[in-house]
Every structure is written in structure tokens, then in C-alpha cells.
Simulated assay, not measured.
Amino acid sequence: MSLLKFACASLFSLTLAQAAVAADCAADSSHGAQIFNTECGVCHAVKKDVTGMMGPNLNGVIGRKSGSLAGFSYSQAMRSKDVTWQAETIAELITQPQAYVPGTYMPYMGLASKDDREAVVCFLKSKEAL
């Protein structure tokens, strides 16, 4: 196989894989919205410019540094965590917040189901949460 054919085949495979992940995430987004509303929405908002909640606004949380949303009073533990929130780190946090960030003010016990955690992450990555 020529290098050009290999590169095209690899790119096509990668594009198909990314499309499959995006499709899975899109399907999980509505389930994630339901879980977010029942499990997370008590303390967190995702609509832009909503303040005054017990937890920080999670609109645009993907790519944000931990403890960095202006105007929110984070625990020293969360400010010191030094993580940039990505799908994997958010999933770790919502598995068991106190274990992931010892000393966090977040009173949530954690979301046991891996599928539910992935759905919440998909929701946070979706247009609905932006």
C-alpha cells in the first residue's frame, strides 16, 4: 500500500472512530442531562451567567482549571488540585469527590455507575450545557 493510500485509510478510520464517539456522546447527552438535573443540578448550573448556587457554574467547565471560576469561593483543596477539567478528570471527580480532592467542600458522595458518569460528561461537553 502506498504511503498516500495508507494515510488516507488511516485518516478515514480515525474520522469514523471520532464520528462513532461523537454519536455515542450525542445519544448519551440527553441521558446525561437527566442525571445532571437530578444528581448535580441541585448545586450546579450549566446555563451561562447563572450565579448564587452552592457549587460553581459548570458552563464551559471542559478545559477550565480547577478552582478557577471567578466569583466562586472554592476550598483550598480544589484551588490547589491543579487539574484542567477534561472528560477523564471530571469522571474521576464525580466517582468519589472527597477521594479525588481530599478537603473539597463538595458534599456529594459520588455517582456509582460508569455509564451515568460518561453520560454526564457527554452532557457537559454538549451544546446544551454551553
Rank of each mutant, 00 (worst) to 15 (best):
M1T: 14
L4Q: 15
L4D: 13
K5H: 11
A7V: 15
C8V: 15
F12E: 08
S13P: 00
T15R: 04
L16Q: 04
A17I: 12
A23G: 00
D24I: 06
C25Y: 07
A26E: 14
A26Q: 13
A27Y: 10
S29I: 01
S29H: 05
H31V: 15
G32P: 06
G32H: 02
A33L: 13
I35K: 07
F36S: 02
N37A: 15
E39H: 07
E39D: 07
C43W: 05
H44C: 05
H44K: 06
V46E: 07
V46A: 07
K47Q: 15
T51Y: 07
T51V: 15
M53I: 00
M54F: 06
M54P: 00
V61G: 02
G63I: 03
S66N: 09
G67N: 05
S68P: 09
A77C: 03
A77V: 09
S80A: 15
K81R: 14
D82H: 14
Q86Y: 01
E88S: 14
E88G: 11
T89S: 15
I94P: 05
T95D: 11
Q96I: 01
Q96S: 15
P97D: 01
A99H: 07
Y100N: 11
V101G: 06
G103Q: 12
T104D: 06
M106C: 09
P107A: 09
P107N: 10
P107L: 10
M109I: 06
E118L: 13
V121A: 08
V121T: 03
L124E: 07
L124Y: 05
L124H: 02
E128G: 12
E128Y: 09
E128K: 15
A129N: 06
